[in-house]
């Protein structure tokens, strides 16, 4: 509780400072971190609370971006387009869930991973509506560059706040109890009367709703989207890494993880444009090997112990 309050206060302070004094770069970083918080918190609902290793974040994000983009191109107002995109993505998540949520482990992971590929290919081919591989230009929202940047910071932060509130409410709700039981022992959960199918679909839909709206806002923010960008598999993996960094299955974990991840990403971007996804890969490997329980586990001594256990016996000093 205390930790949550502190993190919330810190986030609001950062938001206020950015809004008052932030330059363009700072505003961009702020909006990005708000988006990351949203994605990681949303993933945590299905991946952390319910324990289902979903790789469908990119699918929900891209579908949200394109739904909203197409709606805006046809003159639909901004707020309607964003909310509508969220709802359509949630509907898609329900259908996807009906197809793959009865699967466990690897099979579920694959099914969720493929969802983004299917949507990307359909977007690529359906040129008349989506613009195909060339991408889609969105109409500019009004106002000068700085007003726009502040608008998107506010909207994305609001969404992140809403996602965190939803996650916090969830931990205290019946559905939250059901998801925790499902994550630990699904068969036993069903035997004590939990409608596991409906609970899992609810979790996936709630998760996808926030991801879809985040995609919609992202599309308006960047003004231009293309399939390889918004359906990129790294969008599915980054929220997982952030959540692992901060701690899986907690409300504050994804928030902390998102900030930490953005910091690392900026560091890598600055120092290596060419090899940044390679560094990201190394970071992921190091994280899984040395910090599987997240940053909370970070102690210098323990890292050395981990390194020693990873080395084959004959190579240990």
């Amino acid at each position: 509780m205390l930790r949550g309050g502190l993190i919330g206060a810190a986030a609001v302070t950062v938001f206020g400072i950015l809004l008052l004094f932030g330059d363009n770069y700072a505003l961009r970083l702020g909006t990005t971190v708000a988006m990351y918080v949203t994605l990681a918190t949303a993933w945590n609902i299905i991946g952390g609370f319910a324990g289902y290793p979903s790789f469908a974040t990119a699918a929900f994000f891209g579908l949200g971006a394109y739904t909203s983009g197409i709606a805006l191109s046809n003159g639909i107002p901004l707020s309607v387009a964003w909310a509508g995109a969220g709802l359509i993505v949630a509907l898609f998540a329900v259908m996807l869930g009906l197809c793959i949520l009865h699967l466990r482990g690897h099979y579920f992971a694959i099914g969720s991973l493929v969802a983004a590929d299917v949507l990307r290919e359909i977007t690529n081919v359906w040129v008349s509506v989506t613009g195909g591989g060339i991408g889609l230009n969105l109409p500019l929202p009004g106002g000068d560059a700085e007003t726009q940047a502040k608008l998107f910071l506010c909207v994305m932060s609001g969404l992140a706040g809403a996602a965190c509130c939803a996650a916090w409410t969830l931990t205290r709700s019946r559905l939250g109890v059901a998801l925790r039981c499902i994550a630990q022992n699904e068969d036993a959960a069903q035997v004590i009367g939990i409608d596991t199918g409906r609970s899992k679909i609810a979790a996936l839909a709630l998760s996808s709703l926030f991801v879809g709206i985040a995609g919609a806002i992202y599309a308006s923010w960047t003004i231009y989207i293309d399939p390889s960008d918004v359906y990129d598999v790294s969008l599915s993996v980054k929220p997982i890494i952030m959540t692992l960094l901060g701690g899986v299955g907690t409300v504050t974990g994804p928030i902390v993880g998102a900030f930490a991840f953005l910091g690392l990403e900026e560091l890598i971007w600055r120092n290596s444009l060419e090899f940044h996804s390679g560094f990201l890969g190394l970071l992921v490997v190091a994280l899984v090997l040395f910090l599987p329980a997240g940053l909370g586990q970070l102690r210098v001594g323990s890292i050395w112990t981990r390194i020693r256990t990873v080395l084959p016996p004959e190579a240990r000093p």
Binding site: R174, V177, A178, R180, C181, Q184, N185, D187, A188, A189, V191, I192, G193, I194
Partner: peptide, 21 residues
């Protein structure tokens, strides 16, 4: 036996009361 290992003992029983009960 199939408990929910990371829930407290009370939470295990409360979950059964909440759903099946």
């Amino acid at each position: 036996v199939q408990p929910f290992p990371h829930l407290r003992v009370r939470e295990n029983v409360a979950a059964a009361a909440l759903f099946a009960g």
